[in-house]
Every structure is written in structure tokens, then in C-alpha cells.
Design a protein around this nucleic acid. Structure first.
Lengths: 205, 205, 205, 205
DNA sequence: TATGAATGAGAGTTCATTCAT
DNA sequence: CATGAATGAACTCTCATTCAT
């Protein structure tokens, strides 16, 4: 976790701002052109700084996408946090949460970015590791919710729990692909069938 | 629809055989290394012909993946055909079909190939068009099944039908990603929760 | 000795010719600009082929200088071979050989090339290894001559033998530097003092 | 002779101290990594000042190595001074001096630094000029010793004198290379053969 | 039909140097 | 005097594509 992460910067505030600048630009470019389609030249232009300068903040292009993945992970954590903080029966809370969930996952550009990460995982073991680690954490948090007091499925077997979690995750991440495959698809349409499915997954079969 | 698809070949039978050879080799390579990870040199070696010769059958590397997508579409059709040919209540038929469906979609290499196609769609409009066309056809076939005599949901509104189809497609295509994110995941685990969900999607809410 | 030495070439004769072409061009460029001063662009232009094509024959720029070193080694071997093949008292043979030896070592451009190799050895362990290996072989051959029947010092201790060899080698390789430091220096001038020294080194003290 | 050597500094004493600081740091770095291997960043860190600030004292990286060479020249002078100050027969004095001489010239890092300078001379005329000037001065001092009262060769021809000097210089500078080519070589081994050679060079043939 | 030698544009990256502060 | 953020040109190397044979 400390191989060559950062060189010391005199002004950490500026440094952090610049890192953000680069990450934002890279996200934009990767979304538009894909990881391989976007060159450092384009990223640097988008970020408003020279290509060489980016290397003062990131060791490589690879390090940039790794950073984006980690950022992604942190966003995901905050979403779970919200669920954990909310009171009330889990089924109810999550069905209400579907609205935000679908919105997030139907966003076409987020989908593209996620696909790029997954594609990169096929060749880059570190990217694969980060994505897997992120997924493991997400499953763990989800399991925490499902075995909590407020859950109706807190007594099912571990294997069934795993099944429920994986199907739910498959469904949501599958949504990321749908806008690419079917751009006209609307959020409220999806919700019509998605909510019953979520209910199925959160109550005993 | 035929801009530069084929040049005239002296022996059309041999030509078609060679095209197949290339497509198969390219599929293999893309699965193993991804679209950008696999070079023309590797593809040509796998196909057992020179790199230069491939350009007698395909205008570019892009044209190869476009062809693979079209081929993929045809495979998908044959799967729907099977469902359509089978008799019995749709719910039962499809729940039994889940087994094959999960197997197909959990395969890690198929997942990689599909992800590569989707990633390419972000920058190549023709790829996007082909994938969307393929998806549209798949949804049409699926709708045909759901409004047929054997279906329990043949009377729901068009919008709800669309919802059910999209959620089901999201779930299955989402499975393609799971092996990359969670390599230890087993088919029988998934089926535990997937079958109830499929049932939910094929019966009135 | 076989990591990535050569890819298979259809026409080994052409391939060897191209390799020679590149080596010759690289030698020229390194001599004129030094290893770091000469870019692949310049080398390729000098060789009369594209930069990219060079990589069909050499894995890297490093591999090129390594090849030059090995070539150098082989030249050196053939020189020792000449001494070994010649009959007569060793002192006499070698003092006569001084003429060629000085000529070879006073050549300014050869000196520059050798200096570049030595400079590179300071940062590149493989280069260092090759040069050391070459030197070891040279010392071994030299020792072979010095302990032969025709030698007047065949009975000195190993350590003294080593001393004699190293001083002789130091002197000759030192000549490589002199033309850079003193361009007007002439061969016949050097020989005036060099021959007595060689005689000293080949006869008992 | 002062084209861009120094800009005006407010405090010339401090300025000179800073220059020394940089030269010392650069020498260290060049010794360890070579001229091209050591970056301005590393030099500035070693010198304990910012990279930018170095440019207040030196016009370029080249200017630094030029300065180091000049400094080197001065060291060399002081060594000749020692010989000139010493009394006694020259042969005896110098043979005793061999000990120090070999020590100095067998040092691997000194060798690297000198090689870097020579390599740089191939592309930088100013460096070449400085080194040649330095060598000319050294030969002049040496000639002074050889034609002095204490010398046994004070009556030989100018040409022979030149020969003797050049062979001696070749031999010693050649020693600089030997540690790179044969790291195990020991000082006392070398001395075994070097002293007889020095004697040969300082006495009539 | 088939080859693979050859190209060349463009990739990611490094680093001496500049300059606003 | 001193900094280090920022630049940009040049570097080595890759690879889809072309073409003489």
C-alpha cells in the first residue's frame, strides 16, 4: 500500500486539488473514449495541465484508473452507510432505495466507465484485484444488512444468503449495461419489475 | 449494409472457410486477452495464416469484432428458438432453462468477450448499433414468449412487460460480470436465488 | 542465453543482413553521439529502415549495444587466435604485434565506442556483465600464451602473471583514451616506449 | 572565457559556497549513476537545494560537468606539485608514488566519473577542450619532471620523451577501466608488474 | 492465394529547464 | 535568495496496416 504511491508535495492542498483535477479529466476521457482510447495527451488537455506534469501526481496511466476505482469504492461505502443508518424494516427501506439505485445504475456514462474498468481487469491483475476487493467489501456490507434485526431473511443459510446477494448485485450491475444496449429505457419502467424482484430477494422464498 | 464487407474472392467456399477461421481465432484471442490486448499478430498465428492475409477477408480489426458480434446474435437466436419450440407452461420451461442460462452467463471468458464488445460500443458507433439491434431482437423474441398462450403474464401492460424483460436481461447480463468480480461464485449458489426471481418475473405481481 | 534472442525469420539470410545493417548504423551513431545521444530515430535513418522495423531484429536499444559488445568480443578472439597460431618466441611475436595493437587502440572512434560501453556498464548490469565476461576471456587467452612453451615467464607465480596481464591490458585500453585527450599523438611515437614496456612485461623482472 | 559562467550574486561568498555544494553533490551522483543516469532532481536533493536554484549558479547540466572537470584538473596539479617538491632520484620517488597512484586509479567510482567525462567529450566540444587542455598541462608537468636534474632520461629526444609520457599516462588511465572490467583486481597485484614498467619508462632503454 | 518484411503514426513516459511566487 | 510546480520536447517502443513478391 506504499510502494510508490505519492511523492512528497510541498503544498498538500494544491496537490490534492491537482489529483482531483486529473481524476475528473481522466474519468471524462475514459467515459468518452475508453481506457485505451483516451491518451495521456487528451487527458492532460482536459485536465488543463501538461502531460508531463500528471506524472507528478500519478505514477502511470494505470495508477489513474486504479485511483478511480478506489474512489468508486468509497462512494459505494457511503451508500451502504445510508442504508445502515436508516431505521425501519429492511425490505421497506431498500425498496424505497431502489429509486436512487436505478438512477445511479442506469446512467449511461457511469456504465461505460464501469465497463472499461472490467475490461481492463481482464488484462491488468491489479485492476482485477481492486475490483474484486471492492466487490467483496460490498457483499460483506450487504450481508451485514441481511442478517441484521430488521431483516426478514436473517435466518437463511449462508449459501442462500450469498445467492440472494449475488443475484441482487448481478441485477443492478446488469442495469449498467442496459442503457448502452437500449438507450430509450426509462427509470420508472425498470422500477415496475425491479421492486417486486427486490422484495422477492429480501423475503423468505 | 455492404460497404466494404467483402471483396470478390475467386473461390467463395474457401473464402468463407477462411473467414470462419479468422473469426474463431479472434474470438479465442479476445476472450483471453481482450480486444486491445490481442494483436493482429497473435490472431493471425492462432488462425494459422499471415497477418497480411487476414486483410483479404476483413477490412480492419474493427471489422472482425463487428463480425463476431453478428455471429453472437445468431447464437442467441437459436437459444430463443429452443424455448419457443418447447411445450409446457412458460414458467416451468424457463426455470428449467435457468440452469443452462446461468452456466452460459457465468463463464468467465464469455463475460470478458461481451465486456469487450460493450466497451468497444462506447467508441465505435457501428458496434453500438449492432449490439442494440441484437438486444432489440432479443427483447422482441422474449416479448413473443411472454405474450404467448403458455405465459401467465400475457395480459400485463406493454410497459410492465418491458420492465419484466429488461430486469431479466439485466440480471443475466449482470451475471457475466460476476465471475470477474467474484471468481469463486458457483452456479448452484446463484440458482438458489435466481429461480425464485425468474418465477417472480414470469408470474403476476 | 535464449530469453528473447530472436524471433523466427522466414529468410535467415535477409534477417542476418538486416541485423548487420542495424549494428553498423548503431555503431556509427554511438560513435558520433554516444549511446544516449543517439536516438532510435537516428539509428533507423542511418540504417535505412524504419524505427519500428528495427524491433523485428532487436528487442530493445539495449539489445543492440549488447550485440555490439559481443561482436567486439569475437573480433578480440580472432586476434588472440592469430597470436596462438604464430610460431616463434612469444616476446618477439608480440613485440611485432604491437604495431597492429597500437593502430587498433589509437583509433579515435573505436575508443569512443568503447568508452560508451564502459559508461553504460555503470548503469546497466547486463552490459557490465558482458564486458567483464569478455575481459575474463581475454585474460584467460593471454594467460594461455604466457604459460606456453614459447614464453619466458611461464614459471612465474599466478599472481605475478595476473599482474603482468592486467598492466598490459591497462596500457592498451588506456591507449583508447589517448586520442581523445591528445589527438595529435602518433602511432610511431607511442611504439618507441611501448615496445620496451611490452618486453619488460614478457620477460622475468 | 566568461560567456555565461556566473550571473551577479548579491553575496559572492555564499554564492561560491553554493557552487561548491552543487559540484560536490553532482560529483557524487555522477560517480554513482553516471552523467545521464543522474537527474537534476537527484543532484538537487543531494545538494540540499531546489532544482531551480541550481540554475542560479550553473547555466545547465553540461556546465556542471564542465566545472567538475576544471576542478579535477586542479587536483591533478597538486599531485604533480608533490612530486616536484620531493627530493631524491626521480625513479625512486615515482616508484614509491606508484602506491598512491594505483590506489587513486583503481578506485571504481573515480573510474566511472572519468569515463563519463570522456564519453561526454565525444559530443560536447567544450568538454573535449577542457580534457585536452588538462592532459596537455599534465604532460607538460610530467616532461618537466623527466628533464629535470634528478631524472635518468633527461637526455632522450623529445619524441621519445613524449612516447614515455604517453605510455605512462595510458597505463594509469587504463587502470581506471580495469575495476569496471575486473572488479576483483587488487592493488598489490597490479603493483607487482606496474613498478617494473614504471622503472622501464624512467630509465634509458 | 498467401506471405511477412516494412512502415509510420502515436502511445506512455522522462527530465532538463523555466518562472511565478 | 529560494522554491517546486509546471512545461514540452524528445525519448523508446508498439502495432494495425500495406505491399512487393
Amino acid at each position: 500500500m506504499s510502494e510508490k504511491t505519492t511523492k512528497k508535495h510541498h503544498d498538500p492542498v494544491l496537490a490534492e486539488a491537482r489529483r482531483k483535477q486529473v481524476l475528473k479529466a481522466a474519468e471524462d476521457c475514459f467515459r468518452r473514449k475508453g481506457y485505451h482510447g483516451a491518451g495521456m495527451a487528451e487527458i492532460s488537455k482536459t485536465a488543463g495541465m501538461s502531460a508531463g506534469h500528471i506524472y507528478n501526481y500519478f505514477a502511470s496511466k494505470e495508477a489513474i484508473i486504479e485511483s478511480i476505482i478506489q474512489q468508486d469504492m468509497e462512494e459505494m461505502f457511503s451508500i451502504f452507510q445510508q442504508f445502515e443508518d436508516q431505521s425501519g424494516e429492511l425490505v421497506k427501506v431498500m425498496i424505497e432505495g431502489c429509486d436512487h439505485g436505478v438512477e445511479r445504475h442506469l446512467n449511461r456514462e457511469d456504465g461505460i466507465l464501469k465497463i472499461e474498468m472490467l475490461a481492463e481487469a481482464a488484462r491488468n491483475p491489479k485492476v482485477a484485484f481492486l475490483l474484486q476487493e471492492s466487490d467483496t467489501q460490498a457483499r460483506t456490507r450487504m450481508r451485514g444488512l441481511l442478517v441484521g434485526e430488521r431483516s426478514q431473511v436473517k435466518d437463511v443459510t449462508d449459501k442462500e444468503l450469498d445467492a440472494r446477494i449475488n443475484v441482487m448485485f448481478a441485477m443492478f450491475s446488469g442495469l449498467l449495461l442496459r442503457r448502452t444496449l437500449y438507450p430509450e429505457l426509462q427509470k420508472d419502467t425498470i422500477l415496475l419489475a425491479l421492486r417486486p424482484v427486490v422484495k422477492t430477494l429480501l423475503t423468505p422464498f
